[in-house]
Amino acid sequence: MSNTLLFRPNEARALSALFRTGGLTRASLARELDLTRSTTGTLVQNLVDAGLARERESTTGNEAEPKVGRPGIVVEIAGSGVFFLGAYIGVNRIDVIAIDLSGTVRAKATRPFSGAASRPAQAMELIVALVDEVRRTLPPGARPHGLNVALPGFLDGDGETFHAAILGWHGVSLAQPISESIDLDVPVLLENDANAVAVAETYRSAPPDGKGDDSLVVLIENGVGGGIVSNGKLHRGQLGGAGEIGHMPIGEAGFVYDAVRPGRWETFIGKDALLARYAHISGVIGSLDAFIAVLASGDPTALACARDWARWLVRGLATLACVLQPGRIILAGSVSAIYPFVAEQTEALLAASLIEGYPTPRVETSSTGNDGPALGAAYLLHQAMLAGNTRPHMRDVAVL
């Protein structure tokens, strides 16, 4: 029998409302769910008895109930026994994160990984080891309810095999072998890493009314990927592969050689492209961390390279802004650390690239850092569970 937790519709609605708001009195929850107070009282008691919710005195002033007499009793999520696992297979590392029902990170582990020279079996072995490591740090009796694996690339039309060009993997089946290797009878799912980061960046910041702004996440590592959030939902495209923005042709040739598809955006702004450009200008071959350190010191050659990077960054952002009209663009991934050094130039170039009067999206950097892909993968499982759906790759899954 599967270990996957299933909620009754009103239980899922109640937990979703408590997650969005951070806690409600029974009366407010009844209004939120359009249920009688008696029905809501029974519902809350069932959640409390199951260890999924708890009650406490209101101390935040966040509740809409009149503040007369004794403090109100607020119902909030208590998810210490329910966990969701997210993993990330990157070019340089593999991460696993566990969140509880309240969305709080409870454990995480990471290992270095040579993605570009790897075999899928190596990644699967590391994920299995990291899942075991994370589970050992969770409370006794903790129940994981799914593992979602984020990686650079996209699912094939069959919904089972994955293409990750940056890793050299094509038509790879991962979910079933991982499922057979871990000691857990739960769904194992796959997700594009940029989509996962988009969820990580927007999930906890969603307003209580459940409506979200339109955002574009640009994940810049060795390659470049995009996560598109439209009115609080991931835009996946016809077969789920929308957001492969790193492959947009924007020039004749980039700063790294690509004989098959020259001039793609990631060959101008990806990590390899940035370091190749810096090596060409300075004669110094180094790491991204070393480049950022030199840039922070005010080195004019590094600054010239960063400004060149910003110019090509805007070339792609302006195109995407015209097509998607996002309210904000979130730069994520290791290379986004360059942005603060060229933020003023980037914003000015972006505004100048758009037609007069056209809204210029605000540009931000990631708030989730390195945790973004694995955290977003776990959040997708969390959101799907609260929506009563254990298959979060369905196209109607919301971020909020």
Rank of each mutant, 00 (worst) to 15 (best):
F113I: 02
I166M: 06
D158I: 13
A165K: 09
A142P: 00
V74Y: 04
S118C: 08
G159M: 00
D158N: 14
V68A: 15
I99D: 04
H163S: 10
I182E: 04
S102K: 05
E125Q: 09
I89P: 00
P120S: 11
V131H: 03
I178V: 14
V105S: 07
A129M: 02
T104S: 09
G168D: 09
R135I: 13
R111W: 01
S114K: 15
F83Y: 07
L151R: 05
R143M: 15
A121S: 12
F113G: 00
I89F: 03
P152Q: 04
F113V: 02
E76F: 03
A78C: 12
V105T: 13
M124S: 07
A142V: 09
R119A: 15
R136C: 05
N92M: 10
A165H: 13
S114L: 15
R135K: 14
L167W: 01
A109R: 06
P177R: 06
I127W: 01
Y88M: 03
V186W: 01
G168H: 08
V74Q: 03
P177C: 07
I99S: 09
R106M: 14
Q176Y: 10
A121G: 12
F113A: 01
D95I: 05
E133H: 06
R93W: 13
A129G: 12
V68K: 01
A123L: 02
V128E: 10
G141P: 04
P177L: 07
N92T: 14
R70E: 05
E125T: 14
G86M: 03
G103Q: 09
V128Y: 00
R135N: 09
F83A: 13
N148C: 15
L167M: 12
T110V: 08
A164S: 12
L101P: 06
A142S: 15
A129H: 02
G146A: 06
A109C: 13
I182L: 11
I94H: 01
N148K: 06
A123R: 03
L138G: 14
L184H: 05
L138A: 11
L126R: 05
L155R: 08
R136S: 08
A123D: 05
P177W: 02
G115M: 02
E180I: 08
R111M: 04
V134T: 09
V82A: 14
I182K: 04
S114D: 15
R111L: 02
V134F: 00
V128D: 09
A164K: 10
V134C: 10
G168C: 12
I97A: 11
E133F: 02
G69K: 10
P112M: 00
R111I: 03
D132I: 01
A165S: 13
D156M: 13
D100I: 12
P152I: 04
R111A: 14
S118W: 01
F162C: 07
P187Y: 01
L155T: 04
L126P: 05
V91S: 04
G141N: 08
P71K: 06
